[in-house]
Write a protein that binds this DNA or RNA. Structure first.
Lengths: 139, 139
DNA sequence: TAACTGTATTAGTATCGTTAGTACAGTTAA
DNA sequence: TTAACTGTACTAACGATACTAATACAGTTA
């Protein structure tokens, strides 16, 4: 599930952030679901707990999870409380990605197809409550 | 020439790469137009020539410019010779950006509007594709 | 109480971005 | 040819940051 590239130029904690964001967006991890503890995950992945903590802190500041001292870290349910600042950042990223894709030869239609795919896959960013319960393997 | 944030977390050379890509995509810098030499630009911006060189090297590897020893660096005309690898990278970036935007509350329509804007502004990212041979003209 | 959870702090190592200086090779104009 | 430009390569040094490591404190839960 979690295949990290320890030799990558990209910091481990950033890879973790991306992976978790992906799982949360795909609803593999559902609202209020508990994430593995920093120590547990660190043990399973044989990396330092501080690195996990850094990833969790980043995820929390981006509005994807929330942490409760003594209890754990959990998936943030609604994306309504996302800061305007974060939203603007993402819009800028999106604009840059679209511009570059167009420049490199993608057509408007190609991008629309991609958009269709993703809307299909994620339910258009709208959460629906399916049956949960599948424990993920975080190693 | 442009304004860099020397205190930013983002490396100077990456800021340079982004700026140049933007100028090239907007056709402010046109095909085969000469870029400032590494030394000149370094002097103008009071940063080290090596940093400029690193940016130029990156731009070249991404297919945005080409460099000729003794002559200079120039805007790459067609985007047809972009490597498949680069194209895939950009597609992945685009998918990630779309997913995140949807998750953070943007609707399909919002993204389509953004797409319209950019297509409008850049002319759909379609460049004239004249001589698609090698660059032997300059050697 | 015991064992779990998040969180904070300090310290050491490794990597990377940047500067600096030098050097070599190709182009161009005087 | 010479001089001044161009890209390119290399080594060395410094600072910032990513990561590891060890420890400690605070809150939760059985």
């Amino acid at each position: 599930m979690f295949d990290l590239d320890l030799r990558s130029r990209k910091p481990i904690y950033e890879q973790l952030v991306d992976k978790f964001k992906e799982l949360i967006m795909k609803e593999v991890l559902q609202a209020d679901e508990k994430l593995p503890s920093v120590r547990t995950l660190a043990r399973q992945m044989t990396i330092n707990p501080n690195t996990i903590q850094k990833a969790y802190r980043e995820l929390e500041s981006q509005g994807y999870i929330y942490s409760l001292k003594g209890k754990g870290s959990f998936v943030q349910a609604s994306s309504e409380k996302v800061s305007q600042e974060e939203l603007l950042k993402v819009q800028e990223k999106l604009k840059a990605a679209i511009s570059e894709a167009l420049y490199l030869g993608m057509k408007r239609v190609d991008i629309e197809l991609l958009l269709d795919e993703i809307v299909e896959m994620t339910g258009g960013g709208i959460r629906d409550d399916k049956a949960s319960g599948s424990n993920e393997d975080f190693s």
